[in-house]
Design a protein around this nucleic acid. Structure first.
Lengths: 235, 235
DNA sequence: AAGTGGATTAACCAAATGGATAACACAGCC
DNA sequence: GGCTGTGTTATCCATTTGGTTAATCCACTT
């Protein structure tokens, strides 16, 4: 026993939907993605600390041994959940760049995405895993590039906006400083809204409105210093 | 047995340092506060999810049964830790109000406190418990008033600053909006710095510097519209 | 119809964990 | 000196949890 067992698909990375599968339960989605969804759902409702393979399996309606079968370990399943979120986020990133013209429009688009993510539990799961990654090096490795990429997007947008609008700000307001303000505000807003209620939400709306108003005003002052210098090759 | 046992100090709220204690181990601090410190330390190093009474007890150098003896439950111990943090924070709040004159000075004071809190693990524990409170109603009840109070302080400072300096901002930048920006930025900064490294730290410094420069500039423009209207009764 | 191999199940296990409790130590009081 | 009660310890227990595995199922191939 335990000699060499290479039949399990657990470690084979992204186990693509078994095209030639002979699954008995051909209900909504194959077992693997049902486990993935269930894990996501458990994270939104019970949080990372209370995450158990048995709960996930029950939520998915499958035997809990299948989690080992498909994902190896609970940790790997969580990584897979995060991976899946990353994938979905990347798809969105593309549509983000296709947002209508100016920065006010992109800001509004980001707000809409945010609302979606709150409603879908995306923000909750992200926050749970974010916190978990404080004590989990493997998760942190997953998070750092992700957070870095997000902040890079913000930074580039700010740099572009600064060259286009040249707002009257003290020299200390570098693009990095402003981008950091925006990024960390956004992060804090996510955490705050999860713990707070509608009161927080209303204040966040005010803050988001203010920035949007500022962007609209700046666009109005300098309608098109340089028309979309390299925002995208679309249209 | 198990009839009525009313000897345990566990449930008796803040069990004051046993003044007439007859403790055998009169080493650094009584057992109770050593457990409290150990719990804090475990939270900074292992995080909330990995918190076990045995680890805490070992860290405190006491038998793990004493945690039940003094705090009843692990959850109650965590609440006690948070309670202790709240107490220390309130003490500081007073000194915060005694910060030197203008808002730039208060901002600088807040930054110094932040540095202390990062170094002491205070921020780490706060973030851990913040995240834990997403799934723990009892913890959340502890957090909400605390976060609310902090945000209220920020809001009042912003309101005061707005009346004193009247900066040229779009009308959407209400005091609530600005206060929300600052509060959530700060929260996000805390989380980001825990997961990020020196890169994040440097960017935060830039952002904090920028705000400080702005405050200094505003103070210079309108040195004393109303000299310290009600900032404090000190000096 | 027999064979094949992945998918699934039930059962099991070792470890960890929170908590309980009886026994013990020991300082202070009569 | 003996009693009392608090602080402390060693030990025990029930439960949960992650993970493993042998057996079973079942669609599909031959």
């Amino acid at each position: 026993m335990s000699v060499s067992r290479k039949k399990k698909p657990a470690g084979s990375g992204r186990v693509a939907t078994p095209a030639s599968a002979t699954s008995a339960s051909a209900e909504p989605g194959d077992t693997q993605s049902r486990i993935l969804s269930a894990a996501f759902h458990c994270l939104t409702t019970r949080g990372y600390a209370a995450l158990t393979v048995r709960d996930i399996a029950q939520d998915a309606g499958v035997n809990h041994a299948l989690i080992s079968y498909y994902f190896g370990t609970k940790d790997k399943l969580v990584i897979a959940v995060l991976d899946d979120m990353n994938r979905r986020l990347l798809e969105r990133q593309r549509s983000m760049y296709a947002a209508p013209g100016g920065f006010a429009g992109k800001w509004a688009a980001a707000r809409r995405f945010y609302e979606e993510d709150i409603a879908s539990g995306f923000v909750r799961v992200q926050s749970e895993l974010y916190a978990a990654s404080l004590s989990n090096a493997e998760l942190r490795e997953q998070f750092l590039p992700r957070v870095g990429a997000w902040k890079q997007v913000v930074l580039e947008a700010v740099q572009e906006a600064l060259t286009m609008y040249a707002p009257p700000l003290p020299p200390a307001f570098t693009a990095e400083a402003i981008a950091s303000m925006i990024s960390e505000f956004w992060l804090g807003m996510e955490f705050a809204q999860l713990i707070g209620g509608d009161v927080e939400r209303a204040r966040h709306q005010q803050a988001l409105d203010a920035v949007e108003a500022l962007l609209v005003a700046m666009e109005r002052l300098q309608p098109a210093a340089r028309r979309a210098p390299a925002t995208g090759s679309g249209t």
